[in-house]
């Protein structure tokens, strides 16, 4: 049975470093599948205007399409061209929760993410995405600098 590594990308250079580390790790493991995940931060409990609701499906499809084109597809193409077995997905929700869910679903060995670049009040009050993932994850997490 092959191993699975889950890597979370956010379109930033730090995410690229996480991907590079994942490739190195996968190369060391050998028989390994890489699951590339991009999460669009979203809450079902946010407040919206009627107009936003009416065009929500359209906005969601556009966001998924853009994420696939700009982040997931280039990453998958690069991985497969280098001989790695890779799959990708774009999800809506809370980053920490969803990365852990994907790891559980794919029976992954570990999750690899870059260190959060977010700052400001919400990160101070609620903690960064990376910190939340490290605190709540049920599989090992590697944080790449």
């Amino acid at each position: 049975m092959s191993n699975t590594l889950v890597v979370g990308l956010d379109g930033s250079p730090a995410g690229e470093r996480a991907l590079a580390y994942t490739k190195r790790l996968a190369g060391l493991i050998g028989d390994c599948k890489i699951e590339v995940v991009f999460v669009i931060e979203w809450s079902p409990y946010s407040f919206q205007t009627p107009e936003e609701n009416a065009s929500r499906q359209k906005a969601r499809s556009a966001a998924i399409k853009a994420a696939n084109e700009r982040i997931i597809d280039p990453a998958i193409n690069a991985l497969t061209s280098e001989g790695f077995q890779a799959e990708g997905r774009v999800l809506h929700g809370k980053v920490a929760h969803l990365l852990n869910s994907v790891a559980l679903e794919t029976n992954a060995e570990q999750i690899i993410v870059a260190r959060s670049t977010e700052s400001g009040l919400s990160a101070r009050v609620f903690g960064s995405v990376t910190a939340n993932l490290v605190m709540s994850s049920t599989v090992p997490v590697t944080v790449v600098n």
Binding site: I40, W42, P44, Y45, S46, F47, Q48, T49, P50, N53, R56, Q57, R60, A63, I64, L91, H92, G93
Partner: peptide, 21 residues
Amino acid sequence: SDPKDAGEVSHFQALTTALSG
């Protein structure tokens, strides 16, 4: 709510939008 529908308009959002009216 089906997790696959995440990112779509939730029941909570529809309710609160109507309530704001």
